[in-house]
């Protein structure tokens, strides 16, 4: 089989393995990508990320729900863990941006945050995940130490949501140029505006497009 044909076949396997949440299928295809000498980065972008894009569409169309998306994420990470150590960025565009992400203090609901993190990762961002129940100062320190473009804050409760407002003030005080995006059940676009955030994401699939817009705006500054 011609090399290009084989490459496309393997990338299709990666893509469909993610969509059909078949971890073993993705693992086998990812190993074949490496053993047969194909490019790991292309495997991630044209295989795994392409699959996740379809998953995002299925989620938007209410064909897939959270359990299915989590299964797809497991399949995606199975491939990502194999391919990522072999990515050679030489001669490629630099990463799109760096993101600090976490769930604000007092709140431990992190499914949404984990899905957003995954979308950032497959889109080529460098992600610094602080986890859940993160004190405000930790967001500030991590943003400064990594010089990240974006800080993404998540909260699931009205009580913890108020911590976002304080975090935004502190983050902007230290670095007025940092872009801050908010997400989580009680958060709306109106609240994001009210708190002084730069972006708001209703769900994981639009978080990344919102982030890309923000990074673009930042680089034009």
């Amino acid at each position: 089989m011609a090399s290009d044909e084989r490459k496309q076949e393997l990338f299709k396997e990666l893509k469909e393995g993610v969509i059909e949440y078949e971890e073993d299928r993705v693992t086998t295809a990812a190993q074949a990508v490496l053993s047969e000498g194909f490019d790991a980065y292309e495997g991630i972008m044209d295989g795994l990320a392409a699959g996740m894009e379809v998953v995002g569409e299925l989620f938007d169309q209410q064909e897939y729900f959270v359990p299915e998306v989590l299964m797809c994420a497991d399949a995606l990470y199975a491939g990502l863990d194999i391919l990522r150590p072999h990515v050679n960025m030489e001669g490629r565009e630099a990463v799109k941006g760096e993101v600090v992400i976490g769930v604000v203090e007092g709140d431990v609901h992190d499914i949404g945050k984990n899905l957003v993190k995954m979308m950032f990762e497959v889109a080529g961002f460098t992600v610094h995940d602080l986890g859940a129940d993160v004190p405000i100062d930790e967001f500030v320190e991590k943003q400064i130490s990594t010089n990240s473009d974006i800080v993404a804050l998540s909260a699931m409760m009205t009580t913890t949501m108020m911590g976002m407002k304080k975090a935004i003030v502190k983050l902007k005080e230290k670095n007025p140029n940092v872009m801050i995006m908010l997400g989580g059940a009680p958060v709306t676009g109106e609240i994001a505006d009210m708190f002084g955030a730069d972006g708001y994401s209703e769900n994981a699939s639009n978080a990344v497009s919102e982030a890309i817009k923000m990074v673009g705006a930042l680089r034009r500054m």
């Binding site: 949440y21 959270v66 359990p67 989590l70 299964m71 497991d74 609901h109 992190d110 499914i111 984990n114």
Partner: peptide, 11 residues
């Protein structure tokens, strides 16, 4: 945990 429960419901 909700995340693990969802996966368990599937698997």
């Amino acid at each position: 945990s909700a995340e693990k429960l969802f996966l368990d419901c599937m698997k």
